[in-house]
Design a protein around this nucleic acid. Structure first.
Lengths: 233, 233
DNA sequence: AATTTCTAAACTGTATACAGTATATCTGAG
DNA sequence: CTCAGATATACTGTATACAGTTTAGAAATT
């Protein structure tokens, strides 16, 4: 039985989060972009999208601004919105920025490790090692990196992470789609890379965790470069 | 005489940038917050602000979202907006995140150095060394770090930088105000710190540039901690 | 047939309007 | 005088409306 005294609210009860239409629109559109349902380079018209989703333009507008911060759409100088296309240079940027941000997160996670975090990470890695479905692999892969970011306990680092997270997801999904289309078995990239990071974090070895993370993302980058060359050829 | 053939537009002419009310509102409010004109913790009401600025709520709303991304205001779970207050932990986060981002920028700037960048940086450092007005010192200090970010030529790193830039400016302005109020001469912190960074970048020594930057921000952090202790006591 | 001109549709930026919820003020009872 | 309850004010989230500009298409001209 929990107390209902408002002056002692630390009973595990949290303030009710209000979900706005803008957030829901952003989620839906982001997913549609990541999944390739909305193609790269597509123009996005506020009125049309609003009509499709049966909401007014206002939440749509706010959602698009959010997605711009996520780096998955961009506005031209006239205010027109379109789904972003990723050049080879963009991929390089995403890789190098991820390295910087995630090396930091891995180091902090190693330093601040708690029992709960350790459990979540172990669970995630084990689940990934047994998973075969591509969509679930993607989800678990991203979740691993999210968990470490969370574990770093650095709210502003998390803010930065949000500026690349969706782009990371997008590239990941794109790569998996390409591999499936060409009957290439989905890489065991994450499988090989995550375990060493986990081990280093569990050992509270910041240097080793950072190094493992750097290498992991470096490998991912090379995978993407190769893929990029193939897809453009 | 320049060609007006639209099919050959690379004549130094650029697409006309359209400035929106939202951007102007964001600029004004950001400046007001940084300068302390709007106090930390103040509630910001959309209708009131809109009335003061003689615009509708829509651009104000967009501006506040922008300022939230800048980290200078926050929305509570009810959607109420208020000017953010910075705890000691916040200052630590800002310092450590700046270290990560700016070490990267310094390294890249050293690697990609161009003649123009070199000139701008030298000009900036010289101007700072001769400047005595506090406001101008702040401006030049921030500009130095902006220049290096620009020189890094990494659009996504710049995006991350924007999530802390205003908070950096805010802390800087706050420190200067406090120092002035107590008749303490404005620190020569930037003066001492920038020159070594410049030298390393000009020498195209990424390691040294990164190390100098890390040290510079570390020093700035310690300055802020001391100040924080004084102001809270 | 190609190109220019004119016209109509569509889109963005901004303003206004409305509904539901929270906050604050006022009143009355104890 | 304090506190509970009721009423009024204010605010956010969303929808709708409007103006200026851009884009696309039709008509007209060479």
């Amino acid at each position: 039985m929990i107390s209902l005294d408002a002056s002692a609210p630390e009973q595990g009860l949290q303030p009710v989060r209000r979900f706005t239409l803008a957030e829901e629109v952003a989620d839906q559109v982001r997913r549609a972009i990541i999944s390739g349902q909305i193609a790269e380079g597509s123009a996005i018209s506020e009125p049309k999208l609003a009509a499709q989703l049966a909401v007014s333009r206002v939440p749509v507008r706010e959602a698009l601004v959010e997605l711009e911060h996520d780096g998955v759409v961009e506005f031209d100088h006239r205010g027109r919105c379109q789904v972003r296309q990723f050049s080879a240079e963009d991929v390089r940027e995403i890789v190098t920025l991820r390295q910087t941000l995630e090396v930091m997160s891995a180091r902090l996670a190693a330093q601040k490790l708690t029992a709960e975090t350790a459990a979540s990470l172990q669970e995630n890695v084990q689940a990934l090692e047994q998973e075969t479905d591509v969509t679930n692999i993607s989800r678990l892969d991203v979740a691993f990196h999210d968990l470490i970011m969370q574990a770093a306990g650095h709210s502003r680092l998390l803010t930065c992470w949000r500026t690349v997270r969706a782009q990371f997801e997008l590239l990941l999904a794109k790569a998996h789609r390409w591999q499936q289309a060409h009957d290439i078995p989905v890489t065991d990239h994450a499988l090989r890379g995550h375990r060493p990071i986990l081990t280093a974090i569990l050992a509270r070895d910041a240097d080793k965790a950072g190094q493992a993370m750097r290498q992991h993302i470096e490998d991912w980058g090379e995978l993407n470069y190769k893929l990029g060359m193939d897809t453009e050829a």
